[in-house]
Design a protein around this nucleic acid. Structure first.
Length: 258
DNA sequence: TCTTTGACTGAGC
DNA sequence: CGCTCAGCCAAAG
């Protein structure tokens, strides 16, 4: 299984697109895509994202938003899980008089493309679907695609199993607010499965992508067994987002999402 | 299958 | 308010 990151960098109504023209045997040859690439051994997805953006564009991401988790199955490549991001906060090499300067990239040509022209480019069929979702500012989503050669033979929008539904719901909780295990259970159509929601979040395989710290119990309390560092670690993450935590507890009336 | 295991909940003291 | 307990539910073995 290949893990990869892909980022659409936004600047004044444009997306930074990469036209893959340089590599002769590039699987992406001729296609326009965002910037990103595969994770290296021991590297987390956010680390991969920042590294790939820096290598391909020279820009340093200061902030980025996870937008989707997309799995690819095909008859020509290894199964891949791709983490999709957008960013409009990135460092530039000089003061900005207009468009940021675009460095050369050894994988193709970089170009700022007005958002309303992106869909007119030569894109992978499946990319059109998720790019459309980005353009309409859709909330975080899971997606699965099946390719046969260049043909997209099937795709499914939205999480397909219990755990992914939990992660999808958690990823939609905005910074600065929280949700509860029970609320998520209801939201994903499994009322009463609060406990199973907790188990799924405990296993969160998407570290740094799914903000599982934004989920507390019905009393507003942080999780005693929260990842490394327990309840205190969760409280710190919440405080860093502006959520008040007193005595290991969030005031739900104030911070609850929705 | 059946059993066990929890980042859960609400009720009842 | 704090504590216990039975009921719940998806996964894993």
């Amino acid at each position: 299984m290949i893990w990869s990151s892909l980022c659409y960098i936004e600047y004044k109504g444009n997306y930074l697109m990469l036209h893959r023209t340089r590599k002769e045997h590039d699987i992406n040859k001729g296609k326009w895509i965002g910037v990103g690439g595969k994770t290296e051994p021991l590297e987390t997805v956010p680390e991969c994202l920042v590294r790939e953006v820096r290598e391909e564009t020279g820009f340093t991401l200061r902030a980025y938003e996870p937008r989707a988790i997309i799995t690819f199955n095909s008859d020509f490549a290894e199964k891949e899980i791709m983490f999709l991001f957008t960013s409009s906060d990135f460092g530039r090499s000089r003061e900005d008089p207009g468009m940021p300067p675009l460095p050369l990239c050894d994988e193709g040509e970089l170009k700022w493309v007005p958002k309303d022209e992106v869909m007119g480019l030569n894109l992978w069929e499946g990319d059109r679907i998720f790019i459309e979702k980005l353009l309409e500012d859709a909330p975080f989503f899971f997606m699965r695609m099946e390719y046969r050669g260049d043909d997209l033979t099937e795709y499914v929008l939205g999480a397909e199993n219990f755990r992914d539904k939990v992660y999808e719901a958690a990823a939609r909780i905005p910074r600065g607010s929280v949700s509860t295990y029970g609320d998520i259970a209801i939201e994903i159509g499994h009322p009463g499965a609060a406990r199973a929601v907790g188990n799924a979040l405990h296993d969160n395989p998407y570290e740094g992508i799914i903000p599982c710290h934004r989920v507390v119990n019905a009393g507003g309390y942080c999780a005693k067994n929260f990842g490394f560092g327990g309840a205190e670690a969760q409280a710190r993450l919440l405080r860093a987002e502006g959520v008040e935590v007193k005595g290991g507890r969030v005031e739900l009336d104030q911070a609850r999402n929705g």
